[in-house]
Design a protein around this nucleic acid. Sequence first.
RNA 1: GCCCCUGUAGCUCAGUAGGAUAGAGCAGCCGCCUCCUAAGCGGCAGGUCGUGCGUUCGAAUCGCGCCAGGGGCACCA
Length: 585
Amino acid sequence: MKALIQDLVSQALAQLVADGVLDAVAAEPVIERTRDPDHGDFATNAALVNSKAAGMKPRELADKLVLALPTSEAVAGVEIAGPGFINFRLAAGASHALIPRILAAGEGFGRSDLGAGKRVQVEFVSANPTGPLHVGHGRGAAYGAVVADLLAAVGFDVHREYYVNDAGRQMDILGTSVWLRYLELAGEELVFPSNGYKGDYVWDIAATLHRHNGDAFRYPAAEVYAGVPADAPAGGDKEEHIDALIERAKQLLGAERYRTVFDLGLDTILDDIRDDLSLFGVDYQEWYSERSLTESGAVQRAIDKLKASGHIYEKQGALWFKSTDFGDEKDRVVVRDNGQTTYFASDIAYHMEKLERGFDRVIDVWGADHHGYVPRVKAALQAMGGDHAKLDVLLVQFAILYRGGEKAQMSTRSGEFVTLRELRKEVGKDAARFFYVMRKCEQHLDFDLDLAKSQSSDNPVYYVQYAHARVCSVLRQAQEKGFSTEISDGTTNLEHLAEDHEKALLTALAKYPEVVQSAALNEEPHQLTHYLRELANDLHTYYNAHQFLVADDALRDARLKLILATRQVLANGLALIGVSAPEAM
RNA sequence: GCCCCUGUAGCUCAGUAGGAUAGAGCAGCCGCCUCCUAAGCGGCAGGUCGUGCGUUCGAAUCGCGCCAGGGGCACCA
């Protein structure tokens, strides 16, 4: 409908240009839905933005524009208001036609092919597999998933990917932590490193290792700690301590057994993360291994490419990428003086490879704490001659949990929950998904646990779900009262929808495709949650003001059609944000 | 010190590619069930849009400065 108005205005402007009133269209007009129903249904600022170029007052130009406007059956009235806005009032029949369209399209209503099948990759979560997903990862998961689903809904070919950091020091620390716990289970007495992973899950993995291998990986603690410098509590350095222990693990176990321990930790945790996300309604097309980048030679190829373009230099035994050539604040190491490539080197290779895979657009969803990382990744793409404009990094700010009006502690020590799994257990998947995307991503999120759990109208999730359930309930009632739940075809009987509440609901339904589009193109899922709340409100208000199951067959039929269409849109919107649409509550 | 995000009603937030009287939800007060789930609805009250200049016919929205809060500035990942 918006497109129709847009078209009419464009035609009118073109007509004025043809008539010589305007030299050219100076600025594209904005067509928007009015906030105040007194202003009609749509408004455009076409006269305001072009008045200067036309050399006349906005209202004067508006007069000419209105005269040049082609007539349309859908438009019942046009008027000039305020400083020169042109307001459009739609014909009642035009909005009625929406209902059969919604009912016919079903789950497809609101979807479009705007993206024209362009390939978009969305990489999100990508947390290190060194432990279960934290509550902080939940927001990235929910946000990334909805952005991906929204883009898919408007016709992009979306590829969801999780980058698995299965190499590097953090993973070595995990492997070593598992092994040390295993030694303790086998009966060795040792002081666990302060920098090791201390979660219970490490004990679980160690127990599995022990069950499968008995004492085959066991060495006396004294031998393991031989030559290892003191830990921080003993006056040493915790980094040197853990690094030395990693070295001892590799020496004593040898490559093969070390890999067994390492992979057991990795696989166990990755399985847990996969399962966790899946239960959270988040699924991926691909889990991309960082290790594979080294094994395939992609990392070396990326470094060579940077070298060939002249942006690599050597200093103090290390290889540096001159990212300052592309606006970064300092140069970055890609190969350390010990010959090992850095995490950044892998990331350069990964992003190079993303573009090579032919995506039209690449979206990374990162925690806001990584923002300083953006310039160097873009710099690398630029240096390699890739199109860095194809990469979009969306930064998600922190979520803070509140319980009983107090900040909930999120540390393991306090005994409060820390994992996404536990959050899901406490508030449920639906509330968690909804709350995580309720705010735009650059907004710090206050996550009120009590509110998320409350079964009242204060809770937006229940409020929206209840609207859906309410329509289902009316249908059940209809059956009990002996009314037919078969509804008529097309726009039959819809002329009976003349109440203000009905018009408001129709307007809200018509907005849905526009909201989906806007939410998708701006990567703003919160637009959808806000819309759903408004739509639910319109339905509840209507419900309170009018009886649906009336004796008059035609009127009842019309009202049932309207609420069925509303139910469909509520279900479609909820599905997009990964929340269920219950039939009863 | 430099960089990113935020500052709108008592609280949590919409609104920011400039536009008509700045909107919701909570909390507060007042109402609405012999009637399809009151897990609901209506009404009242509540704001110098952090602050100071500037650009403009027009600024919560754009520019500059300042103030406050959060986060980030590794040969870690």
